[in-house]
Design a protein around this nucleic acid. Structure first.
Lengths: 237, 237
DNA sequence: CGATAGCTTGAGTCTTATCAACGTATGTGG
DNA sequence: CCACATACGTTGATAAGACTCAAGCTATCG
């Protein structure tokens, strides 16, 4: 199938993406500005920190991470992105990407040229609202992450991280109790501000407590309720 | 002076606020939807977590904090807000405020009814762009804060926090080397995820190193360069 | 099959939290 | 205007959580 023939209407994640609430004619219009590229391969880079903002990216399949690089050249992961999520919203303020984006898996993405999207948002009220909502949601998620990192200990962070992934898979209609971790433990450690050794030990602990199983990259959540309790019930990262 | 007579055009922070880049006629239009209330007194609450979103708030003077309350009823501060900044953007996604907002000082704010603002954003392209930029900027700031909390130690966090405040005052044309801390050390500790005792000890240390002076709530930065270095030069929170 | 990235395990250390106690502002009512 | 209550800040001693370092193991891929 030609990738360019896939339309928003037939896209499995359109209900999580910008077209939500748009009429068919409006979706056609949105569709017309979207560039669908051939898949990014694992480790391919979508954009780099400092690049001028051309497009924001909606993820159709696969997974990606965003990261910055500090003074010492060390990678600092700022986010993981799954299908239905949008990458690059932080570039709008200064027309410049603030981070690197790299594919963790073979990934399909829709590139949304921002200048066109902005104009279209002026013409389609539903698109404008949805764009604002998506950005607002990202702010919300960032604040939740902030609370998690700021107030919770290592166990709670890891448990909350796994629950968060599980929820995001569930929202996409995918299995939420059994899924593949798209990132390495090194990446998880980096993202959660912990040492890899700690992550490893905590996975072992969670396994001993029969809360989850981890075989290679496949995670099986055995007791979601206890895991949630473990994460500190109030945390909805 | 009647508060309702203050217009965006004559507002000292309009260059930081939504009117940036708007034509006079457009500003008039924006002006017409804004409600300017009498000042909020210290400890007065603007909105509560769970409240339906009616307005977002632009701060004209004073300072505020936003916070959530965890299971145990403990306050968790999620942000401090200074003049020219906008509170409540995280409420747009679900039409519900996600946090409490409380005045730290006597504060003047402009209430922007969101339904009207959304419609106006459809009519004025510059307003739409500016709103998106402001939201993008908040995402950017949240990500920078995330990196700070995740990767830096206690000293670096506090130093970066003070530098961040200083920069924000500077942007507003206020003294950046000498200013009043609008929040208590308890609040700072809460926000930065540290114990108050640690904050107190670190202020002492920074004073010993002749980087800053703290008398009651007045902070005097004596050596901004060293302080920046101390915070880890790459951090621009 | 060997090289390399990713993960595990143990021992020792350090940062920062916690607890307890005391000092210092601030503001209220008498 | 003082006295008291309360919130806020300081200091020291102790302890725990998580990091670092070192070494070994195990997948994975060319």
């Amino acid at each position: 199938m030609n990738l360019d023939q896939i339309k928003c209407q037939s896209c499995s994640i359109s209900q999580l993406c910008l077209p939500v609430m748009l009429a068919d004619a409006e979706i056609e219009h949105l569709d017309s500005i979207i560039k669908r590229r051939k898949p990014y391969q694992k480790d391919e880079i979508l954009f780099r920190s400092g690049d001028p903002l051309k497009s924001i990216y909606a993820i159709r399949s696969g997974s990606l991470k965003t990261y910055t690089v500090d003074m010492d050249g060390v990678e600092q992961i700022t986010g993981f992105y799954l299908p239905g999520e949008i990458i690059g919203l932080d570039a709008i303020a200064e027309n410049t990407h603030q981070s690197f984006a790299k594919a963790l898996d073979t990934s399909l993405v829709c590139a949304l040229p921002y200048n066109k999207l902005d104009i279209l948002a002026g013409q389609i009220p539903g698109l404008r609202s949805q764009l604002l909502k998506i950005m607002s949601h990202e702010i919300q998620d960032d604040k939740a992450l902030f609370l998690l990192l700021n107030k919770k200990n290592a166990e709670q962070r890891l448990a909350a991280f796994i629950i968060n992934l599980s929820r995001r898979y569930a929202n996409r209609g995918l299995a939420s109790n059994r899924f593949q971790l798209p990132m390495t433990q090194v990446d998880i450690a980096n993202y959660l501000g912990m040492a890899v050794e700690t992550i490893s030990r905590l996975f072992k602990k969670l396994h001993k407590l029969q809360l989850l199983e981890l075989k290679q990259k496949e995670i099986v959540i055995q007791d979601m309720q206890s895991l949630s309790h473990f994460a500190g019930t109030s945390c909805h990262l």
